[in-house]
C-alpha cells in the first residue's frame, strides 16, 4: 500500500479536460519524480491532493485517509513546497517558521529547536534579513524548510528547481536527497536530468493519464531493445549500411555521423536480430554493435509523442 494513492481522478476547467482518469501510487520512502510537459496537469494534481482544488470525480488517499476538498485534515501528514513560494516579506525566516509551527500546533520548545535544525539544513541559519529581500533560490530553500517543519510523512514539491540557476538547482536537489530517509518525496518537474539525478521512482503524466510509471531501472529495462549504435571501419561501409533497401521502412529511423550509424526501431516486433541479418546479407562487419541505453529524454519524447 502506498503513502499516496490516486484513483480515477478527473478534472476539467471549462471545456479543457486536464485529468482524464489519473491513477497513481506512490510507495513509502521513495523519491517520486512526477514528470510532464508544461500544462500537463501536474500542479492541478498537487492542488487536489492538498484539498485546494475540487476534483470532478475520483479519489485521493494520503496515509490511508481520504482527502476532502476544503478540509485540511489530511494535510497534517503533508509538507508542501509551492512552485513560487511566497512568504510574508516583513518577517525573517525564524519568525515565519515560528508562525508555521504555531499553526500546526507544535509545542513551543520544539518549534525553536526544529526551526534551527531546518534552517541549518537549508543553509539559512544566520540569515537575519527580511524574507522580502530574499532571492528566488533562498525562498525556495525556505519553502522546503517550512514544509519539513511538522515532520511530514509526505513532502510535495511543485517544480522546485525550474526557476533556478544550476547552482541553486544543485542545492535544492542536495537538500531533497538529505531529507529522503525521513520522508517520502513527490516532486514535479520538466527537467529530466534532475529526475535522473535523485529519483528512484518516476511517473510521466501525459494527456491526463500516466503514460509511464515505475522505478527508473525498470522503465529503462522495459524500453531497452529499440536503439542501436553501429560503428564501421570506414564511411563507405557506414554509407552502404545506411542505404540498405531492407532498412527503408517507416518504422525504422536512421542517422549517420561519419562512421557511426544510429538506428531506432519503433516497431515492437523488430529487434537486434533483424539488424544482424541485414549486416550479414550486406557482408558488413561493424567494429562495434551496441544496444543503446535509453536516456530518460528519449523515453519521455517517445511516450509524449
Amino acid at each position: 500500500m502506498g503513502i499516496l494513492e490516486i484513483k480515477q481522478l478527473y478534472k476539467r476547467f471549462g471545456h479543457h479536460e486536464v485529468l482524464k482518469g489519473l491513477d497513481m501510487d506512490v510507495p513509502e520512502h521513495s523519491i517520486f519524480g512526477f514528470v510532464g510537459q508544461n500544462g500537463a496537469g501536474k500542479t492541478t494534481t498537487m492542488k487536489i491532493i492538498l484539498g485546494l482544488l475540487k476534483a470532478d470525480s475520483g479519489s485521493v488517499t494520503v496515509c490511508g485517509e481520504k482527502v476532502t476538498y476544503g478540509e485540511t485534515k489530511t494535510n497534517r501528514n503533508i509538507g508542501f513546497v509551492p512552485d513560487v513560494p511566497e512568504f510574508y516579506g516583513y518577517m525573517n525566516p525564524m519568525e515565519y517558521l515560528k508562525l508555521c509551527g504555531e499553526i500546526t500546533g507544535l509545542p513551543k520548545n520544539k518549534i525553536k529547536s526544529r526551526s534551527e535544525e531546518l534552517l541549518e539544513l537549508v543553509g539559512l541559519k544566520d540569515e537575519k534579513r527580511k524574507i522580502g529581500q530574499f532571492s528566488r533560490g533562498m525562498k525556495q530553500r525556505l519553502g522546503i524548510a517550512q514544509a519539513l517543519l511538522n515532520e511530514p510523512k509526505l513532502l510535495i514539491c511543485d517544480e522546485p528547481t525550474s526557476a533556478l540557476d544550476p547552482i541553486g538547482r544543485k542545492e535544492i536537489l542536495d537538500i531533497l536527497l538529505a531529507a529522503k530517509g525521513k520522508t517520502t518525496i513527490v516532486f514535479s518537474t520538466h527537467i529530466l536530468s534532475d529526475v535522473e539525478r535523485i529519483c528512484d521512482h518516476i511517473a510521466v503524466l501525459h494527456d491526463g493519464k500516466l503514460a509511464l510509471c515505475g522505478t527508473l531501472s525498470e522503465i529503462k529495462k522495459r524500453h531497452r531493445h529499440n536503439g542501436f549504435i553501429l560503428e564501421f571501419e570506414n564511411e563507405k561501409d557506414a554509407f552502404l549500411f545506411e542505404n540498405a533497401e531492407e532498412l527503408k521502412q517507416p518504422s525504422i529511423s536512421l542517422s549517420r555521423d561519419g562512421t557511426t550509424v544510429r538506428v531506432f526501431l519503433t516497431d515492437r516486433n523488430m529487434d537486434g536480430h533483424f539488424l544482424l541479418s541485414v549486416l550479414s546479407q550486406k557482408r558488413l562487419v561493424p567494429l562495434k554493435f551496441e544496444v543503446m541505453e535509453p536516456t530518460l529524454e528519449t523515453l519521455f519524447v517517445e511516450v509524449v509523442r
Binding site: T72, V84, E86, F87
Partner: peptide, 15 residues
C-alpha cells in the same frame, strides 16, 4: 494574489 495564504492553509489553518 501573492499566494502567501495557500501555504498556511496547507498547514491546517482553517479558512
Amino acid at each position: 494574489s501573492k499566494g502567501t495564504l495557500i501555504n498556511l492553509l496547507t498547514k491546517g489553518l482553517s479558512r
